[in-house]
Simulated assay, not measured.
Amino acid sequence: MKERPNLVLAVVAAVVVLLAAVAAFLAANRQPPDLDPSTPEGTVQLFVRAVLEGDDEEAVGYLDPSLGCRAPLPDLYRPQGATITLVDSVTRDGTAEVTIDVTEQAGGGLFGSWSHRETLRLRAEADRWLVQRDSWPIYSCR
């Protein structure tokens, strides 16, 4: 009679593990919403996406020309995949600071990723925003 409660407990535990795995898979493969490109947040999203996809021409278009960056960008680390999450955005007097959490995937498996927080600084120019200073993932163009 004691075998039946153990079997029920094992089945419940297996279902919980399966649901957790499905939830993790869905969360990892969820596409983020496209942000308004006329905002600092949208500019950061487009800039990071261009860098990660290797579109150096587009990425340079989001950078302040005073940085001296040109395509092709210098050798830089490009993760195999990354998930970017907006943490905070502060805009004042024509400047902005956009803070993001970056989760990089370096291969397969549950432990093949790590996270870090980055803050990108932007300035307004006419009807768009430009990334200022050397920031992640391009620390220097010189």
Rank of each mutant, 00 (worst) to 15 (best):
F47E: 09
C141H: 02
D134P: 03
S113Q: 14
D134Y: 14
R142A: 13
A126C: 02
F111Y: 10
R49Q: 14
W129I: 09
D134A: 14
P32Q: 08
P65K: 05
L130Q: 10
R4P: 01
L122F: 09
T43M: 12
L76F: 05
L19C: 08
V90K: 14
N6W: 14
M1Q: 11
R30T: 11
R70G: 08
A50R: 02
H116N: 04
D88F: 03
A21Y: 06
S113T: 10
A10F: 10
W129V: 07
L130W: 08
D101N: 14
A24V: 11
P72F: 07
D55K: 12
F47R: 06
E125Y: 12
V44K: 03
I84T: 00
L73N: 04
K2S: 14
N6Y: 11
A20H: 02
L73Q: 03
L63W: 01
V48A: 12
L63T: 02
L26I: 04
T83S: 11
A24M: 11
L7F: 15
A21Q: 08
A106L: 13
A96E: 03
D55A: 09
F47C: 10
Q132W: 04
I138M: 09
D127T: 10
G112T: 03
G108N: 06
R133H: 12
L52C: 02
E41P: 00
C141W: 05
S89I: 00
G68D: 03
W114D: 14
S89E: 10
P72H: 07
S135M: 07
V16W: 07
E58A: 14
C69V: 01
Q80E: 13
G81F: 06
A50M: 07
V16H: 05
L46W: 08
P37Y: 05
R92F: 06
V51R: 06
I138Y: 06
G107C: 08
G61W: 09
L130P: 06
V98N: 10
P65V: 04
S113P: 00
L9D: 04
G94W: 03
